[in-house]
Design a protein around this nucleic acid. Structure first.
Lengths: 162, 162
DNA sequence: CATGAAACTGGCGTGAT
DNA sequence: ATCACGCCAGTTTCATG
């Protein structure tokens, strides 16, 4: 329970880089197949399975790996229409938007952003007209600007630097 | 929940709903822990492991489960700054934007949307000034409007209907 | 249901500090 | 001497036919 060195609480220690060559390779392999077994990963990088498990555990504990996500097709669960909604809160309503977004099940993500519109929110509905009641809720606290998702040329992926 | 009649070429068969009560429960459990073993899921819903595996296989083959994703903290791999960039292509440049987005490694997703801005793109960089070269590339083909991500009150999650 | 594979655990060796 | 890291071999659990 004791705090270790002064790592800023994020586990980033200078000198011993958490992301050495091996861990980068591990992340690449896991990114390509998040369900790959530790034994499989171990084979591909020429290490023992326990060693790989140990590294994965550390990557998870330190927050490099935030988690694993299930990618469900929204259309398959009855929500074929997606829209991005920008919300500009009225005076004093800023705090309500995020709370509201979190409570609406059709919202799949919500970002606080810089600029005139303070929030960027992704909404999934069964049909276009079903967006109305969702927008109405946000309109209690501000103005909205909606754009339907027509296609997704680049589906969510892990970014790479450089 | 409700199953549509025509499958739109996606393999959804009428008559036997693919998403019965059990599959919905399975998806919920798997969504909460995408690495859960079939045996573990079987225990929680009171079924045999092979039965659960069979259901998962069908959910994957039919595209209800699109896949599994690794959630890596961008900050941990040296990209702590995120921004949403809207791109409005110039005349005749529409096709170039998506291709460009796909080729830029700092882009984690790109959506074609309705409205005056045709594309919504998420970009990750090491520092604010590193956004410049990325924007410059898009500015070859149109206008951009950028918003930095200051917080993410609702991190990407599986939406739910109703 | 049986067999092979994978996950966990504890213990040991090595190399750097 | 300590610590970090990886390997090995034990057992239990899981996957697949």
């Amino acid at each position: 329970m004791a705090m270790q060195k002064s790592d800023g609480g994020n586990g980033f220690l200078p000198g011993k880089p958490l992301l050495d060559e091996t861990n980068v390779r591990l992340l690449d392999l896991l990114d390509a197949d998040p369900r790959a077994t530790a034994a499989e990963l171990a084979r591909r990088i020429g290490m023992s399975a326990p060693a790989v498990r140990e590294r994965l555990s550390r990557l998870e504990e330190t927050g490099v790996i935030r988690g694993y996500r299930l990618d469900v097709d929204p259309a398959a669960i009855g929500l074929p229409v997606a829209a991005w909604v920008r919300v500009r809160p009225g005076p004093g309503q800023l705090g309500r938007i995020a709370d509201l977004a979190a409570r609406i099940p059709q919202v799949s993500e919500c970002h606080r952003i810089s600029g005139e519109d303070c929030f960027l929110i992704k909404v999934h509905v069964a049909a276009i007209e079903d967006l109305e009641p969702v927008l109405d809720q946000f309109l209690q606290y501000g103005q909205t600007h909606s754009s339907f998702v027509v296609a997704t040329p680049v589906a969510p992926r892990t970014p790479a630097g450089r």
